[in-house]
Write a protein that binds this DNA or RNA. Structure first.
Ligand SMILES: [Zn+2]
Ligand SMILES: [Zn+2]
Ligand SMILES: [Zn+2]
Ligand SMILES: [Zn+2]
Lengths: 132, 132
DNA sequence: CTTATAAATGTTATATTATTACATACTGTT
DNA sequence: AACAGTATGTAATAATATAACATTTATAAG
């Protein structure tokens, strides 16, 4: 049986906004967009973001300080994330490649250490930007 | 022939500090530590950091907003970085594993796209923290 | 229903990280 | 000397994130 994770009011408002956005959203942009719904302070946004990240509904793009909805219903664990980022238009997509995730999840470093979590960000030019 | 990259005064001061630090340093901690050497403003620090990152002498640990000296003289390109981060003691090491870097540099996503740059951060418990 | 506990909220203030804007100086090349 | 590129100095401000404290709501047990 799956874990239930019903979102609270603020969490739902903020998740809906991020989920319908076509690009990663920054915390203060989120704040601006939900003020009409009664969320007035940064902390209310950050608290919801923290929770949503923890349960894997969204991910943080660390190099951009921005948040994107999980595109990959199976990575609710939020422990193994990979993204492609266009350095020209800033388009971000979540990479869902089982070979890659297996390779990284099973990676053992020179000291024999295994990791329970990783975040990978690839940078390059997206199709559209490459062709122009 | 290699590119020369002589560091300027501020760049050298800041690189030396980061290089001799046993842990990643944050920008304002760097600022505090170099004030006696005449570097007084955040911008002076950030400018030196930008340059040092660009030439690959240091790397930014994105998830920590901190900077670490490159441990791997061969990655001066600063385009292919991988780190292990202990979630308990925050120890960070640069991973130098040619199989991993080849795998990631050659990675092609589902859309056939190749990337010229990546950053990978692994999280877990270091040896010391695991044993306690 | 009552009590206990954890999770979520509201609010103010503040800390931390990073950039804009503008003036000046240094370095190497022609 | 003139030029271009890089680096510096300084002040102000923007953008990102957390601390502290009071209150409320949801969940589960007794
Ligand atoms: Zn995901
Ligand atoms: Zn693009
Ligand atoms: Zn390196
Ligand atoms: Zn540790």
């Amino acid at each position: 049986m799956e874990k239930q994770n019903n979102l609270s009011k603020n969490q739902q408002i903020i998740f809906d906004l991020i989920d319908k956005s076509s690009e990663p959203m920054k915390a203060y942009s989120i704040l601006f967009n939900v003020q009409k719904k009664g969320i007035k302070a940064p902390l209310q946004v950050y608290r919801a973001l923290d929770k949503l990240v923890k349960i894997g509904k969204i991910h943080k793009i660390e190099s951009r300080n921005a948040f994107i909805a999980c595109q990959n219903s199976s990575c609710q664990i939020s422990k193994a994330t990979a993204f492609s980022i266009c350095e020209s238009c800033e388009k971000v997509s979540e990479i869902s490649n089982s070979k890659l995730s297996k390779y990284l999840s099973n990676f053992v470093d020179e000291a024999g250490m295994k990791y329970n979590k990783y975040n990978l960000e690839f940078f390059g030019l997206c199709k559209k930007c490459k062709s122009t």
